[in-house]
Amino acid sequence: MDFSLMDAEPIWLSLQLAGVTVMILLALGTPVAWWLAQTRSRFRVVVEAMVALPLVLPPTVLGFYLLILLGPHGWVGGPVKALTGSALSFSFTGLVCASTLYSLPFVVQPLHSAFETIGKVPMETAQSLGASRWDAFFSVITPLARRGYLTAMVLGFAHTLGEFGVVLMVGGNIPGKTKVISIEIYDRVEVLEYTQAHILSAGLLIFSFLVLLMVYSINRRLPVQVT
């Protein structure tokens, strides 16, 4: 039974998708989380609710709207198609867009709470010592928020790796393009190939457990903050 070759592609695709998504989410999530932690605007609750939406929404609902939005006639997909010749639905780029939205709360929330814990004082202190806001953010805030970043990265990565509904809706099931592990597992079960399904499922299970184990043990070992 030679399953290694045929199974490598979905795994590689999943890892790529999760990696790219986490990168984008860190870049997008950091300013959003910082703004949420700093602002006294009344729109704060609105933004907080929007960020948390993917936590409660059925993935199929999110996937459905995204499919319309990213499709050849959608607000986003339409212009993209006009520019590049193809829409975003059923493409890897479309999957990245969808995953970014779907995993947003898993990145923004740990960062938000990390920034809130840090408070205003370190920023003020760094500025009083002559640092610009950017300088202070990278030299003081980011290192102080490293637990938050670690948690955000791992949760974002693991959650993207495990998504199913949104991916199926937006990306479909195109081998080498949009067929990720979770969909591959579904396919195998459909055709009663339980052995392959087992291997992929167990792999994902062990991987997830190891990642979380690593996060929690690193978190324990990071020095405790003092004021």
């Binding site: 004082v121 370190p122 202190t125 760094a126 009083s128 003081v140 102080l144 003092v226 004021t227």
Partner: peptide, 12 residues
């Protein structure tokens, strides 16, 4: 230079 009641040293 600013000095407060708490030292506000950078823990990292």
């Amino acid at each position: 230079g600013l000095v407060f009641q708490e030292s506000r040293l950078f823990p990292h």
